[in-house]
Design a binder for these strands. Structure first.
Lengths: 168, 168
DNA sequence: TTGTCTGCAAACACTTTGCACTTTT
DNA sequence: AAAAGTGCAAAGTGTTTGCAGACAA
């Protein structure tokens, strides 16, 4: 049977396309690649922004080509994509927000509480800090999530006009 | 009118007790200190662990002295306590978890995905890292949240017996 | 053909809200 | 007495699930 780990071309680049990886993951557990699942994976793969389930659902519906998918199917498929390692899920203001994970380097976020924009950043120091802290507590780290909330440049300037600002 | 900021005794220590601060906050906006609100604030203040709304509700109900409070009142009061700066709220696995904020130094968490335990830690370096990153993006930081998930010492040892491990 | 999917509607967990009655100030 | 609070039941979110018909392998 084929294995994704057999290849290793350089740094973060991965051997399989997200679609291939998904197919492999699904096949491995006897799940099928249906029209809906394919449409969802393709659509998500085509864009690199953060998004939530309802957004995706709406976009799929407005797409002429693929006939879209129902809400349950969208939610089910997003979960499968997270399990497959294609997407990473985070919870913001009560709803799940997804971002690409497969083939992307580890990173964290700046979250603008005024316009809800997520800005990515990576920090090698943070990883080291994380490992050091974990070691101190004899804790085995599996992952982490840092969200720095505040006001982004855009909102800082137009802040004077309309009252912005929300919870942290 | 009285102001909490008039005092400033030393480092992290605060002048008013949580109860006093809450009372001041409420008075300032014409809200009353009812039996229920008092019971909730007292109960929460008496313990320093992390907790969620349902837990608190159950504890209040099982407490003989105060007759407890209804679910809506518990939720309403928790929100008020967060607004008053007494509690900090974070969302974990779908529900809100609260911890003391007033008079406590900034800290972050290690989260055991096996037993759901939260372990606190503080890191001055993290604050600096945060500010440096924010500065790079001309972002005005208002707060941050770092959660390192993994397996705690206890679960690491008893891990062999029953299969643990969950999502990040 | 067989077993997995889909979509619908209903169920869910957590949290908030409308409203009549109660309580604090 | 006046204003704000409480509790109940109901409404809301966002997300999941049972099930009968639809479809991929």
């Amino acid at each position: 049977m084929a294995s994704a780990a057999d290849f290793s071309l350089g740094t973060v680049r991965t051997a399989l396309t997200p679609q291939e990886r998904f197919a492999e993951f699904m096949q491995a557990r006897g799940k099928r690649i249906t029209r809906q699942r394919q449409a969802i994976v393709d659509h998500v793969t085509a864009r690199h922004e953060h998004f939530d389930a309802e957004q995706l659902l709406a976009e799929l519906r407005s797409t002429p080509a693929d006939a879209g998918a129902s809400r349950p199917t969208v939610y089910r498929t997003l979960n499968e994509m997270v399990e497959a390692g294609l997407l990473k899920k985070m919870v913001l203001d009560g709803r799940a927000v997804y971002e690409h994970d497969y083939g992307y380097p580890q990173h964290d976020h700046l979250y603008c509480t005024s316009c809800q924009q997520l800005i990515e950043f990576s920090s090698e120091e943070l990883i080291q800090l994380r490992n050091a802290v974990a070691a101190t507590h004899q804790f085995r780290p599996q992952g982490h999530r840092l969200i720095i909330s505040g006001i982004c440049v855009n909102c800082r300037s137009k802040r004077s006009t309309s009252r912005q600002q929300d919870r942290v």
